Simulated assay, not measured.
Amino acid sequence: MRPCKNVHMLPSRASADDLLVLLEVARSGRFSRAAESLRVNQVTVSRRIAALERAVGGKLLVRAASGWELTDLGRRALAAAEQVDGVLQKLESGSEVGAEIEDVVRLSAPDGFTTFVAAPAAARLHQEHPGISVEIVSATRRAAQHRSGLDIEIVVGEPRVIRARALRLGGYVLGLYATPDYLERHGTPTGFDDLARHRLIYFISSMLQVDDLDVGRRYLPEMRDAVTSTNVFAHIEATCAGGGIGLLPTFMIKPHRGLVRLLPDEATVEMAYWLVAREDTLRRPSVAAMVKQLRQTMREMGNVLSTTAAPEA
């Protein structure tokens, strides 16, 4: 009688279910969030990932400060997982044409971009694709080397990135502003030399993570701090309250706030917003649709981003 083949010696195949678990972990960066999305517990997620690693013969994830990050093998497995997910979405829709996208896009951006660009873009995206929801986190920082849990990062200044793409979205301008009352009390500066007599409202230098935003110290070294904050809206409110001279994004200054633009020919600092995302993430239909909306919103704001929005002194 022929002996039975030992099934335990046969190489295992990657399970489609396990690939979908990897997909959720890659999108969220957390086992807990993946478990919540899949409606299972974290033990099941861990067990599925371990089974997939045994099937493909290597580590798919490594722990990073911000969550779980994909290895090179993990990125290849993720590409397969995205294909499986795409096929399943087509089957569930009953048609390959006009299938509704169901996904969550997670984005981080500085406060001003979040309010004036990301939020309107996300709202229009959701109107066009009701199955896509967008999570926006306000953060002014450098591009992360490990971007688990985020699909898109918006940063100020051209970033140095590894295993990701950086796309320039557009420029904007920083200018000096003050209230008429402040200028009446302290005098109106007519040149850079006069600024040393005034106090600056800007970011906290010691907490600033973005080199390009450290212009307060580079361009205005003689000005002492009045009010500093990690939040640009605090800069605007402190300036409107007459606390000093604010170095502010011109596109965020509403005419009704009564601020006066100072030294526009001399004190104009050009900045730029950049988008950072992994190549595999950019291929997801939901992320591609969000990038399209961000670019469209930036184009529509082109004139506002590059011009003053208050009277000159």
Rank of each mutant, 00 (worst) to 15 (best):
E270L: 10
R224L: 13
E100V: 08
L200A: 02
A289R: 05
M1W: 13
G216N: 05
V161C: 09
R257Q: 12
R63F: 12
L167N: 00
Y219C: 13
P159A: 07
A144V: 06
E82F: 00
E100N: 13
A143H: 03
E266H: 13
I101R: 03
R224W: 05
R185G: 02
G98W: 10
I253H: 00
R284C: 05
Y182I: 00
Q296P: 06
A50V: 13
G157T: 02
E24L: 07
T250L: 09
L248D: 06
M1H: 14
Q145R: 14
L275S: 06
G112P: 02
L125S: 03
L38G: 09
S138G: 06
L294K: 01
L305G: 04
R142Q: 11
G157E: 11
S205Q: 11
R2N: 14
G74P: 06
D151E: 14
E266M: 13
G246V: 01
V304N: 01
G246M: 04
A51K: 11
G242R: 03
R283L: 13
R224Q: 12
A143I: 07
K254W: 12
Q83F: 08
A309L: 14
M301K: 07
Y202C: 04
A80E: 07
E82R: 13
A238C: 14
E266P: 04
H126R: 11
E158N: 10
S66A: 15
P221A: 08
D214F: 00
L176H: 02
